[in-house]
C-alpha cells in the first residue's frame, strides 16, 4: 500500500459516506422541480411551478405554520425548564439527585411510539378534549426537556469553577456572579440545546401522529398522511428551503463559534 493511499483512505471514505448521507437530500431537492402528477415518485420533466406557487397545494402552508408555532413554543418552554434543571444538577447539592437523573434519562430511552401511545392513552382517558394543538405542544415540550438538560448540563460541567470563584473574590455577590459570569459562559450550550429542541420538535412525526387528533396538522404529519395519496412537490420545495435555512443557521453558528474560540468577538 502506497503512503498516499494509507494517508488518504479515511478521507476518501468520509467523502463517500457524506455523499451517502446527502443522496436523499439531493433527491428531495431534485423532485421539487418535477412535473408531478398525482404522485411525485417518478421523474416526468423539469418545472418551476412548485417553487412559484409554494402554497398552491392545499393545507401545506397551514401545516408549516403549525409546525413553526409548535416548534417555537415547545423550544422556548423546554429550554427554560431544561436549563433550570441543568443548573440544579450542575450547581447544587440536593437529595433525590439520582431519581432526577433517572427521570431525565427515561424519556430518551423510551421509543417514540411508546411516548406517543401513552400520551394518547392519557388524553383519551381525559375525554380527548386536548387532542390537537394543546396535546402536541405538551408532548413536544416533554420529549425536548431531557435533551435540553443533557446538553446544558454538559456545558455547565465543562466550566472552570475557578471562574465563578474569581468573580466572588472580586466583589460579585451570588446574583452578579451568575449574571455576569456563569450565564454568559453557559449561553452557547443553551443556544445549542434550543436548536436541538427545535429540530426535534419540527421533525417529529410519530408522537404528533398519535396526539394531533383529526383537525391539527404539522408539516411532517402532512407529508406522512399525504404519502399514501401522493406528496405534492410543494412539500419538497418547503423541505429544501428548510434545509437551506437550517444549514445557514448552523454554518453561521459554526463560524461564530470558531471566531469566538479565537477570541475575536464576544
Amino acid at each position: 500500500m502506497s503512503g498516499w493511499w494509507s494517508r488518504n483512505v479515511l478521507r476518501i471514505y468520509a467523502v463517500l459516506a457524506l455523499g451517502y448521507l446527502l443522496l436523499p437530500v439531493a433527491y428531495t431537492l431534485a423532485f421539487s422541480f418535477n412535473q408531478a402528477g398525482k404522485s411525485n415518485l417518478i421523474w416526468k420533466g423539469f418545472t418551476l411551478s412548485a417553487w412559484q406557487g409554494i402554497c398552491d397545494a392545499p393545507d401545506v402552508c397551514a401545516a408549516v405554520r403549525n409546525s413553526l408555532l409548535v416548534g417555537m413554543l415547545a423550544t422556548l418552554i423546554a429550554t427554560v425548564l431544561g436549563t433550570m434543571i441543568a443548573f440544579a444538577l450542575g450547581r447544587h447539592q440536593f437529595r433525590g439527585r439520582s431519581t432526577t437523573n433517572l427521570l431525565i434519562f427515561l424519556p430518551m430511552a423510551t421509543p417514540e411510539v411508546v411516548l406517543g401511545s401513552s400520551l394518547l392513552a392519557l388524553f383519551v382517558n381525559m375525554g380527548g378534549g386536548l387532542l390537537g394543538f394543546p396535546a402536541v405542544l405538551l408532548a413536544h415540550v416533554m420529549f425536548c426537556i431531557s435533551f435540553v438538560v443533557v446538553t446544558v448540563k454538559a456545558r455547565i460541567a465543562s466550566l472552570d469553577p475557578r471562574l465563578e470563584e474569581a468573580a466572588r473574590d472580586l466583589y460579585a455577590d451570588e446574583r452578579q456572579t451568575f449574571m455576569k459570569v456563569t450565564l454568559p459562559l453557559v449561553m452557547p450550550g443553551i443556544a445549542a440545546a434550543a436548536l436541538l429542541a427545535f429540530s426535534l420538535s419540527f421533525d417529529d412525526v410519530i408522537i404528533t401522529n398519535f396526539n394531533s387528533g383529526s383537525n391539527f396538522t404539522t408539516f411532517p404529519k402532512f407529508i406522512w398522511t399525504s404519502s399514501l395519496r401522493g406528496i405534492p412537490p410543494q412539500a419538497n420545495v418547503i423541505a429544501s428551503l428548510m434545509f437551506a435555512v437550517a444549514l445557514a443557521v448552523v454554518v453561521v453558528g459554526q463560524i461564530n463559534a470558531a471566531r469566538r474560540a479565537k477570541g475575536l468577538i464576544a
Partner: peptide, 10 residues
C-alpha cells in the same frame, strides 16, 4: 491572583 489565572474568557 489565581494559580490558574481564571481570567473571564468572555
Amino acid at each position: 491572583v489565581f494559580q490558574s489565572y481564571a481570567l473571564f474568557p468572555h
